[in-house]
């Protein structure tokens, strides 16, 4: 695709509707190549220039722009946005809800529940990656629910409890009734991952089994 671009007249020379279609496909190609930065640029252009009344086209664009934005900006679609597109709401609502609550068991259930549809639209793998955000939100809650004075030093045990919390309460599915016990090593590994990916700021004190969090913005970009 990039090779052929050089021989092409400027995009402005084409009718807008063609440009929108072209940008949509560029976006989908980038998306499938996991180049989410470019996907975001192309798809945003397509959405902004799409005719106001072409609901179906917007729906198609958003099918890819929503998972893209979840990964690039760590942002979820607003309920107002989804409410305008019932099909997208059905597709994304369960996953978005569990990402927001940080309920990991329910997140997995939502992913399994929508698997067929997600695979068909080729967004399954991308959505799977948004589990990081669900986990970040869960860990963030663990921190927020500590007493004010203990918010920078938190026992790994607390995160372990949070990760094992069962899914009941979330309406998506209730088929995993038993409590999941997560190994402490796994919890440490996931915490280290969060820190490595820049979703959390701090370090793990292994001898004290404690997570020491940065006093300033331990969860960058979330105003905490």
């Amino acid at each position: 695709l990039p090779a052929s671009l050089a021989d092409m007249p400027p995009l402005e020379a084409f009718p807008k509707s063609h440009v929108v279609t072209f940008k949509y496909y560029c976006g989908v190609v980038s998306f499938l190549e996991e180049d989410y930065g470019s996907a975001e640029t192309h798809l945003t252009y397509a959405l902004d220039n799409c005719k106001t009344d072409s609901i179906r086209n917007k729906e198609l664009i958003l099918t890819y722009l929503i998972p893209t934005t979840m990964l690039t900006k760590h942002k979820l679609p607003t309920p107002e946005l989804l409410s305008r597109f019932p099909r997208l709401a059905a597709l994304f609502n369960p996953v978005c809800k569990t990402i927001k609550s940080g309920n990991l068991q329910a997140f997995d259930a939502a992913l399994r529940h929508g698997e067929e549809e997600f695979v068909k639209r080729r967004i399954y793998l991308t959505l799977e990656r948004t589990k990081d955000i669900a986990m970040r939100n869960l860990f963030r809650k663990v921190v927020l629910y500590q007493n004010e004075e203990n918010r920078t030093k938190i026992p790994v045990r607390q995160f372990q409890i949070a990760m094992g919390l069962e899914a009941d309460g979330d309406t998506v599915m209730r088929s995993t009734p038993e409590r999941v016990e997560v190994e402490v090593e796994e919890v440490e590994c996931l915490l280290a991952n969060m820190i490595y990916k820049g979703l959390m700021k701090g370090y793990i004190s292994r001898e004290r089994q404690t997570v020491v969090l940065s006093g300033k913005e331990p969860f960058p970009g979330t105003v905490v």
Binding site: L47, D48, K51, K58, K75, T222
Partner: peptide
């Protein structure tokens, strides 16, 4: 060629987790 404000009104993405 429609130059209508698009998408019309409303935020697309959640701004806060709070």
């Amino acid at each position: 060629e429609t130059d209508v404000q698009n998408p019309p009104g409303g935020r697309l993405w959640e701004e806060s987790w709070d």
